[in-house]
Structures are given as C-alpha cells and as structure tokens.
Design a protein around this nucleic acid. Sequence first.
RNA 1: CGGGGUGUGGCGCAGCUUGGUAGCGCACUUGCAUGGGGUGCAAGGGGUCGUUGGUUCGAAUCCAAUCACCCCGACCA
Length: 568
Amino acid sequence: MKLSKNFGKTQKETSGDAELISHQLLIKSGLIHQVASGIYSYMPIAWRSLKKIENIVRNEIDKAGGQEIRMPVLQPQEIWDLSGRTEIFGSDLFKLSDRRKRKLVMAPTHEEVLTLMVKTHVNTYKDLPLLIYQIQTKFRDETRPRGGLIRVREFDMKDAYSFDISNEGLDQNYNAMIAAYENIYNRIGLETIKVEADSGAIGGQASHEFMAVSSIGEDTILKCSKCDYAANSEKAEFVRIKQKTISEKILPLEEIHTPEIKTIESLTKNLSLDPDKMIKTLIYLDSNNQPLAAIIRGDLDVNETKLSNLNDGKDLRLATSEELSNLNIPYGFASPIQLKNIKIIVDTSLNFGNNYIIGSNKENFHYKNSNYPRDFSSDIVSDIALAKPQDLCVKCNNKLDLKKGIEVGHVFKLGTKYSEKLGAMYINSENKQIPIIMGCYGIGIGRLLSAVIEQNNDQKGIIFPKSIAPFDAMLSVINTKQENIRKIGEEFYSNLMDCGLDILYDDRDESPGVKFKDSDLLGLPFRIVLSERNLKNQQVEIQERKSGKQELVSFETAIEKIKMKIQL
RNA sequence: CGGGGUGUGGCGCAGCUUGGUAGCGCACUUGCAUGGGGUGCAAGGGGUCGUUGGUUCGAAUCCAAUCACCCCGACCA
C-alpha cells in the first residue's frame, strides 16, 4: 500500500490522556481512533495487524479441533435470567429493549446462547464431544475502561466452549486449549505465564489465566521464585509459617486490659509482641446483610475472594462500626469467643500457633493465651488469607515473587453449571439424561495487540513481531521529487509486491527525517531505503527494526535478499 | 460509585486569578529553497472557547447546573 493513500496520520504529540506506552504508541502512529470512553475504531494499519492476530488464533483453535460458528451479539435477556447471570453481571451487562419493549442484552460472552443451541442440536453421547468457537464482538459496560485497548467496553474476543460427557474429556479439551493458547502467544510474540485463577462470575471448578507480565498490568500475580507455581492474587495459596515462639504449654485464657487499643498495630506496640502472636477478627456483611466472622492470624490479611467463595460467592464488605454495635460487637475488640449466631470462618493459620492475643467482645479488653479450638469453635476452617511476596510456595516451599500482569486469556472448567440451568442434556448408553460437562475459553484480540506493543517497543516506537506486523516492510523512497528516483521506487515497489511481499510504500513528498521517524514509529520488521546516495552505488539499504542493523546490498540482488530476510 | 483532574481550530497547549469579543506550536493550503533523522523562509485558511442557564453594558474568563473524557481507588471473562 502507498503511504500517501493511507487513511490516518502519525502525530508528533499524543494526548495527555494516554498514559500507557501501548496507548501512546497506538495513538501516535494513528492506528486507533477513540470514539467514546472504552470504544475505539481501528484504522487500516491496525486492522491489518488485528486480522493477522485473529487468523493465528483461528488457526490454532482449528488445530485443536474447534469448529467456528457465529452467534448474535443481541440476545433476549430471559436467557440471562435463566442462567442467573443478569444479576451476577449486574451493571456490566449492557441492556436495552426493542420497540415491543422486549428486554435485550448486548452479550458480554456467549455461554447461554451456545448452551441452548447445544440443547437443540445434541441428543446423544454419540454427538459429543464438541469444541465450538467464534470470534465475535463483546460488550461490557466496564466500571472503568482504561489504557487504550487494554480495557474497553466493545472488543473482539475469541470464545470457545467445550462439551463433554466425562471429566476426562473435559480435561482433554482444557489441556488442548491451554496448548493452543501457548502456541498463539508464541506465534504473536507475547511472553506470558499461566497462572491459577479464581473462576469469578463465569463460575466453575478450575480456571487458569494467561498473563502478559507487565508493570502496567491490572492483575497481581504471585509466582514462585524456584518452581513453576503461579497464581493470581485472588487464588494464590501459601505455606503458613509456624509461630517463632510457639509454646509447648497451652496456658489458660486470661483477660487483659487494653484501653483504646483497637488495631493489631497498636497491640503490637503496646504489648511488644509480633503480629503473628495475635488473632484478628473481621466482621463482614454479605449482600443480604448477613454477618460473617473471618478469623485470621494478625500478620495476615483476608483474601475476600476466597472468603466470598466459602459463602456462596456472595459479595462481601466489612461491617461499619455502627453495624458492629448493632451486633453488640465493640469496634476494635471483636472476637470469635462467645460470638453467637454468626458464621465463623477460621483461616488455617490458627493451626500453627498457640496462646494468641485475641479480642474479647468487651470494650477495652483482650484475652491472652487464646487457643483454637479450645476457646472458640468455627463453621469452616479454610485458607482465607491473601498471599504476599516472600510468602512460601505451596509446591516447593521457596519464596513467592509479586508480579503485575495483563490478562490475555482465561480458561475455565465450567462443569455442569450452565447445562443444568439451561437443560443441555445428552442421553447416555443406558438411556439416561445427563447434563453435558462444559468448559469455556476466552482470548481478547484487541488486548493482545496492545499487550504485544506494551512488550515490544523502544524510544522510537513500536517493534512489531513479524507474525502480526501490518506489513512485511516499509519501503522508504528518499526524494520522490526526482523523477528518476520516483520511477525506480515505483518499479521496485511493484516488484516486491509481485514477489508476494506485503509492502508499505512511503511515496510521500516528505523529508528523509520524517520518513525515518514514521518508519521507526510504525515499527514494521524491515525498512528498505531507496535514495540517490545508495542508487549512485547501485545499492539498496535494508534495516531490521528490532536490532537496528543496517545492510547495503546490490540493487540487482536486493529483492531476493529482502524476500529471504522477510521469510526467514 | 468515592477521590483527583481536564474540556479553547484536526492534534498538543496558553489565555481565566484581575471580564472588554481569542493566541502559540504541530498539522493543513500555496510559493520558493532543501533532500539521510520530525529542513528553512514567506504568505494563507480554519475556532458555537463542552452544553445550558444566570450575573453584567459586555463572559473563554465570574456563578450554578449538566454532559463528556482521563487518572487513582472500588469493581472486573
């Protein structure tokens, strides 16, 4: 394509609105155009790259046995009511109604429609397994779109769904998709790590996320410094360390006067004891305002996702001090001891120490030498703690590191959650109706592009990996005003195109500086320079964007050389 | 939703405190020069100052409401 004809221009300056490098580069290079918050148009050059990404994704999912279909964005709200996700998605779900006042939604994902399709078209175990996917525009009314294409409200996503008759079948599909995802990231030049994840609003038994490690990532990952264990912060587990001063002897409970000492921090100071000698009691309220007590060692923080999962996934929030006094719990002195009619969830950390300081439910008093389960009971003992860097890996006992990541793929084992709710059953060999076992697998196309740019750039601009570069190379012709050079350039361009190469031909009447800057900014894998200086010596310059390495080759062999380099 | 910020030619910004009818850079048009790292000179075109209402003889500027966008948090396949 001739750059002079391209719809879209590079800019010298970017809006102060753009903070992320990928966002700045996408705007500076004229690749995207913002229409509204979290809503973008893709300009021709970006669209080429996105189509390449899309095709790599399509190719890998096809290889994994996927069948591509296309489902509508617009869907009746009733099917979302049926699965119960109208409420779960809440305000993130774009809703509208048609002229007959029928309620519709703009789909943020497609489990419902596809499960209902499968219900119609699958009858027997002989029809399974299936792996169905589409690449479709999704809509989510995000609370806060941000970072250019990183988090948007309208975006293209590949979503795949597996349907199996056994957990082994599900495992197979799940693993096949993980392998496909890893191929995709390799091919598009994105470094990712696979982490264990919480299954969130989609629901289900197991889930992994693929994270592009990046300091601007929105997600927090804990990754073992030695082994391959990695999980996002909602999911991450860790080994509880035993108390340093663990007492052999369990001492009797004793009340101590602690006036106005309401926090672990002030207890630590006033009693000269480490926080891991204390127990903290946090009272949460769920969406129905049902209270819940989370009991955890003083040096640890509660992971609200883990806690919520133990409470039917209901949203939780900390009770205010007024709400506490309504429950007869003095703020700052809450305690599981003598706590009645409240569900108590205890973190496993309490099993690794004894003789703790603990609240008393009495204003200005704590107990010392409290021991679990001697002094209080619990409804559930489980891991409800938030992992921190330096905590120990559950697999190998080495230290965990904290990293930030951009979520670029998510896979879930759904199980029978949707098939049961929507009645997607098959008949087994014994003529019994059995719910189909499902999995779902998502990967965001636009987010991949911005993640790749976020990872592949330098001071000068984007450095496109070959596989997703909008063109194979930039042909910069210097001084197009000179008739003979322009002619050579035109011919050279069409010869390159005839070789099947995809060339962006800078035929503009611009100064060399402008052409070079734009070429670097756009970051195609190679730049080919035709100029008077080189042509005098019958030479053509080829520069690799990534390394900056320049090479002068003879005019005759230039096309062959270029072809070789590009196809390498 | 809470906190902070910003809306002025296509883009980036100044002007607002102290009211007097809009300016700079980039981009654009034309001409001349230049031609290996955003080149130089000259001449031009283009703005409902986010919107609505108010105060005033007079509002980009003061007041009020409202909308949009960005950042942090909360939230989030």
